[in-house]
Design a protein around this nucleic acid. Structure first.
Length: 158
DNA sequence: GCCAACGTTGGC
DNA sequence: GCCAACGTTGGC
């Protein structure tokens, strides 16, 4: 995948929402817990400081894009992966040989109203968006620039 | 709670 | 390397 400047990252708001991010010191957090190789590779290999991220609330009512964040630290090992007490513990990952990586993101804006998945489906410019593909489960995915712009524009209209 | 659509694991 | 069984994601 060529260098993308735009991404979408999913989170379940019951465990970590964009409001949690807003409440963080410096409105920054490390995006730990990703345990999918493709998603990891995007974070580890392609995310650069300054890239923009759509923050998506999955398993929400309704599922929706909640706002925008930006990458403030490029990939480094996800230390939760070698913590046996962590929910996302992976015995095959160690500090010496980490298998999972994460980035730091900083809140840029919370949309006045989240943009529901159903609304996104009606936008022509988003027809090919990964998020809208049937069976799409990837929790970290690249977004094309026109797609990113279409989502942000839609948020402004409300 | 259901279940389709994945991704991962492990026996062979 | 195949593929069945299992686990997970996430919309509905």
């Amino acid at each position: 995948m060529a260098a993308s400047k735009y991404w979408l990252m999913k989170t379940e708001p019951t465990s970590y929402s964009i409001q949690h991010l807003a409440a963080e010191k410096k409105q920054t957090t490390h995006w730990d817990g990703v345990r999918n190789y493709q998603a990891r590779n995007y974070m580890r290999d392609d995310m650069k400081i300054g890239d923009k991220v759509l923050v998506y609330h999955s398993n929400a009512k309704p599922p929706a894009v909640a706002g925008v964040a930006t990458i403030v630290r490029e990939s480094y090992p996800d230390h939760t992966s070698w913590d046996p007490d962590n929910k996302h513990y992976d015995p095959k990952s160690t500090a010496q040989n980490p298998r999972w990586f994460m980035v730091d993101i900083k809140l840029e804006e919370i949309f006045d109203e989240p943009i529901p998945l159903d609304d996104l489906r009606e936008i022509k410019a988003l027809k090919a968006m990964e998020l809208l593909r049937k069976g799409s489960r990837l929790s970290v995915q690249p977004v094309r620039k026109p797609e990113f712009n279409a989502v942000v524009t839609l948020a402004k209209k409300r």
